[in-house]
Design a protein around this nucleic acid. Structure first.
Lengths: 175, 175
DNA sequence: GGAAACTATTTTGACATCTAAATATTATAT
DNA sequence: ATATAATATTTAGATGTCAAAATAGTTTCC
C-alpha cells in the first residue's frame, strides 16, 4: 500500500478516535470535547469574544456561536454585550460552568495521555513535531488557495434524477 | 505550554484542515472526502454491503447509510437487495459514479501530498509511524476503558493478548 | 413449525462543523 | 454629516458523525 494511503488511514483513525472520545466524555462528564475546550479557554482568559475563542481553539466563529448557545442554555456561561463597542459579545463562565469544568476529565483521551506521558522525552518530542509538521503542511495550502480550477466536471454533476439539487455547489439560482 | 496541550492543538489543526479540504473538494469536484472514499472503496471491490464499507473506511454503519443516501439520490450509486440473504444490501457504482470518481482529486490535500512526497524517505516513514503510533495509542483506550458504562459490546471483546486491532473496538468479524 | 437469538440496515435524535448571507455597529472619507 | 467600508456576531442550510432504537430477515433449537 502506498505511503500516502497509510497516512490517510492513520489520520482517519485519529480523527475518529477523537470523535468517539468526545462522545464518551459527553456521557461521562456531560460535556463534549469542543465544549470543554471552549470552557477552558474562557476560564483561562476571564472573558472572551466569539472571535477570540474561534482563534484560540481553531474553529469558525459560527461554530463557537452554536456551542455557546448550548452552554448558555445550560447555564454554564453568560454573554454580555460590549459597552465600549456594542458589536462585541463577551462570554463569561458562571459558577456552575467553573464548577463542571474543573471536575471534567481532559479533552484528550486519558488512555492516550497516560501512554504518551510514559514515553521517553525524545519520543514525545518526535511525535509532537511530526504532528506539527503534518498540521503545517496541511495548512500551508489554505493560505494561497487557488481560486481558479477547472469546473468542467461540475456542470455535469446532477444530470440524473433531474431538478432537485440538494447540493448547491454552484451559483445562485433563484432570481 | 505543556506537551500534551501542544499535541492537542496540532491534532485539532489537522482535523480542521482535513475538514476544510473536504469542503473545498466538494466545491471543486462535487464530492466530499468521505463520499469519495466510499466511492473508491466500492469501485475497488465491485460491490459492497454497508457493513463492508463501514469497516473499510472506518465509520459507523449509520454514517454509511446517510452518505449512500446522498450518493444514490445523485445517481452515483445503486442499491440492490441481496437475493440469497435479503438482509443485505449491496451498493454498486453507476456509470456516472465511476465517471465522477475517476476524475476527482485525491481525498488528501494535494498540497499536503506534494509536500509530503518531496520529503526524504526516512522523514516520510518517521511521520507515518508517528501518526500510526498516535492512532494506536488512542484506539488502545477504546478497548479496555469504559469503566462506568453499561456496554453490551464488552462481552464481544475478547481479551486479546498482543494483537491490537487498530480500529473500533467492536467491529463484527464478518468475513 | 414456531419462538428465541442473532445479523444487517435504516431511522431517530444529537452534536460539531463549515460557508455564505443577514444583522448590527463602528470607523472613515468626502 | 452622510454614505461607504470595515468589523463582529448570528442565522440558514449542508454534511458528517455516532449510539441506540426500530425494522426486517435468518438460524437454531425444542
Amino acid at each position: 500500500m502506498a505511503r500516502h494511503d497509510e497516512v490517510l488511514i492513520a489520520l482517519r483513525q485519529i480523527i475518529r478516535a477523537t470523535d468517539l472520545y468526545s462522545r464518551k466524555l459527553s456521557k461521562v462528564a456531560g460535556l463534549t470535547a469542543p465544549q470543554l475546550l471552549i470552557l477552558q479557554a474562557i476560564a483561562s482568559q476571564g472573558e472572551m469574544t466569539m472571535g477570540d475563542i474561534a482563534t484560540e481553539v481553531s474553529v469558525s466563529q459560527a461554530t463557537v456561536t452554536t456551542i455557546l448557545d448550548r452552554l448558555e442554555k445550560r447555564g454554564l456561561i453568560e454573554r454580555k454585550r460590549g459597552e465600549r463597542d456594542k458589536r462585541r459579545v463577551y462570554a463569561y463562565l458562571t459558577d456552575a460552568g467553573r464548577d463542571i469544568m474543573e471536575r471534567a476529565p481532559t479533552p484528550l483521551q486519558d488512555e492516550f495521555m497516560s501512554r504518551f506521558s510514559r514515553l521517553e522525552d525524545w519520543e514525545q518530542s518526535l511525535i509532537l513535531s511530526s504532528l506539527q509538521r503534518v498540521a503545517a503542511m496541511m495548512n500551508a495550502g489554505d493560505i494561497d488557495a487557488s481560486p481558479v480550477l477547472d469546473l468542467g466536471a461540475i456542470d455535469r454533476i446532477q444530470p440524473a434524477a433531474g431538478r432537485r439539487r440538494t447540493d448547491s455547489s454552484f451559483e445562485t439560482d433563484q432570481k
